[in-house]
Design a protein around this nucleic acid. Structure first.
Lengths: 238, 238
DNA sequence: CATAGGTGTTAATGTTTGGTTAATGCATTA
DNA sequence: TAATGCATTAACCAAACATTAACACCTATG
């Protein structure tokens, strides 16, 4: 569970205002994707996963309500906040019917928006249970629990793994007996592929080899210039 | 899920307005309990279980913020909406910090309020796990009554827990032996996730560890960068 | 209305952990 | 056999955590 910034999709046709708001939100540790109309907003929505959408109502090509309905068809969970200059009751109701979580009239105070964002994201982030990813693996006589970052050998006292050790081992296991390309680990785990991250990865391979020595049937092999391969010998069928 | 009307606690000192609003809400199939000041509101809150609280901010004896804080100490799940004639930024921020879910300036349109209520209640009721009526737990030789906030060791004199101690311990117990992510506790209990709340949480972990020392089989372990883990060793099967 | 007690936050300090980089040597390939 | 890639250990620095104490705030109570 990494502490990754929450992602916000901001759709606003006023480019100046949009840029200012984007900067403000980014200063407050959100990842912001800005789209300048409903059309573009929907395209960007489909291509990524967001924790929150902030939609301007009045936009060319496709207004905020229409966009909200399209978003709701794809995703019934993501919170939506409308920004609007209107304060007419009909429009507000229309917004709620389109699936809004909140409504804000322009001009508004940026701190207030920030509070609302935090309140809304907090409510939703309780549904973290979506993290139904696999986190338990067996490899030779080892068992890896990658949620607790524990590597257990033969029911002995578990070895505690660091986050990077854990991620790297998991990725090797997912490619068991097959090539795990250097580049893959570097881009996924180190989020950068250069000389230094590559050296760093070597250090971690060395650490993992040390742990895995306990089981002589488990080994990390290098494929020169390509990557690594986790092999398990003498595998018994169950 | 039974088809029972949702219960609303409405605290409003303007008796006329309160009665009108109550009628309107009841016409829309809510069960409404009306209190005419913060004091009375808190009494009624303690005596029943509500799906939503609507609090006027300016009231004699006890204002809406204070009431909200008291309510939050008892229950930090129930949604709260503030009603206010003020629209000062400071007041709005104060409201959110007191744990508001939404904010409405008087005069407001009743239909808008209705939409907000429906939106908020819907959000909450999708949190099925919010059905955490369970409040008694055994952990090692301890027994926690999280309603009375009593932690008992071996039938000795109970240790009184503060609201935060209690919530945190409960959350740890609900994740017994498993990871309880930092972020989860911070967003759920502290309602904010930043450097300071995180330090504060560390202080509370230290306090809990001190209490739990009585049973050497119960321990709170840290998983660096992830969260905490409450483990019970030498568990006997029953 | 002063004050003691309870609660929660912030500060101060020290410890642990994790990750990168450096240094050195070996292996593979062209 | 030079150049590049890999292996391993150790040194270093930054971030996360642990603990205690100081502080601020509110409430109940004499």
């Amino acid at each position: 569970m990494e502490n990754v910034n929450k992602k916000i999709l901001l759709v606003e046709d006023d480019l100046n205002f949009g840029a200012v708001l984007k900067d403000y939100l980014m200063l407050n540790d959100f990842d912001v994707t800005l789209a300048k109309n409903g059309m573009e907003g929907f395209e960007k929505f489909k291509k990524d996963t967001f924790d929150l959408c902030i939609l301007d109502v009045m936009m060319p090509y496709k207004d905020g309500y229409t966009l909200a309905k399209e978003i709701r068809e794809k995703n019934n969970e993501v919170p939506i906040i409308f920004l609007t200059a209107k304060s007419m009751k009909e429009d507000v109701l229309k917004g709620y019917k389109a699936g809004a979580d909140d409504y804000l009239n322009k001009p508004f105070d940026s701190e207030v928006l920030l509070m609302k964002i935090k309140a809304i994201i907090q409510r939703k982030s309780s549904d973290v249970k979506a993290e139904q990813v696999q986190f338990e693996f067996n490899i030779g006589k080892f068992h890896l629990n990658s949620k607790l970052r524990f590597l257990t050998f033969n029911n002995e006292e578990p070895i505690k793994l660091s986050p990077k050790e854990n991620e790297l081992l998991k990725m090797l296991i997912l490619h068991e007996n097959d090539l795990m390309p250097r580049e893959l680990a570097l881009t996924k785990i180190w989020r950068d592929d250069n000389y230094f991250t590559s050296r760093s990865m070597d250090v971690y391979i060395a650490k993992l080899r040390k742990y895995l020595k306990l089981d002589e049937d488990v080994e990390i092999l290098n494929i020169h210039g390509e990557g690594f391969r986790l092999v398990v010998k003498n595998k018994v069928s169950v």
